[in-house]
Amino acid sequence: MAGSREIRNKIKSVKNTQKITRAMEMVAASKMRKAQERMKKARPYGEKIRNVAAHMSRANTEYRHPFLIARDTVKRIGVIIVTSDKGLCGGLNTNVLRKVVNQMKTWQAEGEQVEVCCIGNKGLGFMSRVGASVTSQVIGLGDTPDITKLIGAVKVVLDGYTQDQFDRVYIFYNRFINTMKQEPVMEQLLPLTDERMQGSEQDSDKSKAIWDYIYEPEAKSVIDDIMVRYVEALIYQAVAENMASEQSARMVAMKAASDNAGNVINELTLIYNKSRQAAITKELSEIVGGAAAV
């Protein structure tokens, strides 16, 4: 029985692979639930700070924060790319990176310079491989979108904007639509769009009134702080969504891999049985032939 041992070995190895993919699927499923919860928990903060920022932008007229002022000429663009740290999650990172590359190509054709800030290992690896200029990076976020880890890299970009290094800042990430569907999106982060400076719908009519705030210690520093936190909250939300997307994409990819392994095993088992039966038939016919010859 020549080939049968090899087939048996092959089946064994595919079974081992299937065990791994199945385990990864289950790990991703449990992480996905947590990631989705985290994404939802981040929403109230995003909503509240958006309302506060909206109230503030209406209330205070003498000081306009640089984040709100649109620049006429756009020469340099800052891009924040959110990707996952690890692979094995289907086309998630590829999709978002393709969008980035296409967009960067158009920008460069228009004569704009692009600098990137990478959140996540996959994007960083890709960007430095293809030679984009990376100004800041965060890798190894783990499973929680920790704001302490994001602050540094984000500050580089925000400072770049206030110091006129960038005229515009965009963010790319995977928006979580549902477990089966994630969509790569590009959003303008700075200057803050009017849409972002409007209070959410839940904001009551009463609080849409114009408040004449008392600022403590003084208006400028309080407004600066709130604007920075608002942008950070937007980025945090994007990272949280990307993480939820990552886990669900991984779960789906690993499920498909386990199913595929199952199919391969079935087929190999069939081939194995066939070859075994063929060998038995051959042996029998040899014995019968031998007996007839005697």
């Binding site: 200029s133 990376v134 800041s136 302490t148 602050i151 540094g152 500050k155 580089v156 400072d159």
Partner: peptide
């Protein structure tokens, strides 16, 4: 933190 993030990126560059 900002300096740290910048430095890491420069090193990678």
């Amino acid at each position: 933190k900002a300096l740290e993030a910048k430095r890491a990126a420069e090193e990678a560059m």
